[in-house]
Design a binder for these strands. Structure first.
Lengths: 217, 217
DNA sequence: TAGATTGTTAATCGATTAACAATC
DNA sequence: TAGATTGTTAATCGATTAACAATC
């Protein structure tokens, strides 16, 4: 039963991505159907939790005794995660990280389409990355309005981040994916998501520390 | 009072990074001390939650009526997040993303030191990225053992991910930062952290959807 | 049919919030 | 001193888990 509404917690999103990962693996191993118990086992999670989580995404219902069709389940989860809902975005700050993200084809699968880059550096403006133009930051507002873009990827240096974000908001951007270490202030009707790889690294380091501690005993 | 032990939840790590971000901003604005109430306000969080979170990180205690010294607080949080605890790592799979991560100086600040890259592509082996050598995957095991490296960044193509992870485990790696979309199976004493940018994008997309829905009313 | 599994409702647990004594 | 803020303990809320009726 599709549970269509309500603000869904970060924990659910994280697990949903886990499910998609593991299910793709199971499919590659030849599975055709999968039960919530089998999926929970594979990920060391509680079956009830898996069932409840899946209920947020499921359109193609499972069958008692059989479980879920693995293809349908993957599709439902990927739809839930928005893979098949293409999101046009611009990217501002075409430095090393910005170039990597513009050229990184992995994002396409997730439904992110970076249509153009913006920068102030003259040298980079003549270039194209992956067939995408790099335009001067001055043209940002007109381009965003013309193309009706609502999302931006922010990869400027720390010091410019807030000023660029302000310009993005003025241009009509409503969602900013922030890869800079700056704290970005925006009005309430503009979402900011910090891509904080430091957090992942910290979590992993903590786990490593615990593992090494156990080993040394 | 430093609460030194216990497995700390992902939610705490996420907020801790938020605190560090905002505090750096406040410092730049000239603040010298900050209270938990002020920090909570700035981030729209509950003051009790902020106080409890900070208690995990704090070495330099706050003063009643005054609050925390902002420099000391930033330092404590950055220590908690492991910024000042250098972690040597290798990177396997020197494609576009791998090159970007090897050349990305942002990681240094977080305490991650990528000492070398590994790949099977002959063409790339002659290159150096940011002064770091790229070695053939065959040398992985001996290098990891010699340098006593415990952490690896995984940026191979999807299909090679599991086989490379197996090799890493054999070599003695105990923590894998997985940037591939593959589900990686490892023994219990090897930690895996999936860097799932699809999750961030999904969360941001959900927020954008809610914002646009409100606007259209 | 008998049994495994679904989807959902009730019970439990952990994280968040509120309250408060200590203190500068 | 009076009042603001800390650090911590008790109350509340939401997320996780267990239980169970429905069903293929």
């Amino acid at each position: 039963m599709a549970n269509s509404e309500g603000s869904i917690s970060l924990a659910v999103f994280n697990r949903m991505a886990q499910y998609a990962r593991r299910l793709r693996g199971m499919k590659a191993e030849g599975c055709v159907t999968v039960s919530s118990v089998a999926l929970a086992d594979a990920l060391s999670l509680n079956p009830s939790l898996v069932k409840k989580d899946l209920s947020f995404a499921i359109v193609n219902e499972g069958k008692p005794k059989v479980g879920y069709n693995i293809d349908e389940l993957i599709e439902d989860i990927e739809n839930f995660l928005g893979y098949n809902n293409t999101k046009d975005a611009i990217l501002v700050g075409v430095g090393k990280l910005g170039q990597a993200l513009m050229g990184y084809h992995g994002f396409e699968k997730y439904g992110l389409n970076i249509v153009a880059g913006f920068d102030i550096d003259e040298k980079i403006l003549s270039r194209e990355i992956d067939g995408k133009k790099i335009l001067p930051t001055g043209k940002l507002e007109s381009a965003v309005k013309k193309l009706n873009i609502k999302m931006a990827v922010l990869t400027t240096p720390y010091k410019e981040a807030q000023a660029v974000a302000d310009a993005l908001v003025r241009a009509g951007i409503r969602a900013i994916w922030n890869f800079t270490p700056a704290h970005i202030k925006t009005p309430d009707d503009v979402a900011v998501k910090n891509e904080d790889m430091a957090v992942s690294l910290a979590v992993l380091s903590q786990q490593l520390k615990e593992i090494l501690k156990k080993e040394s005993k």
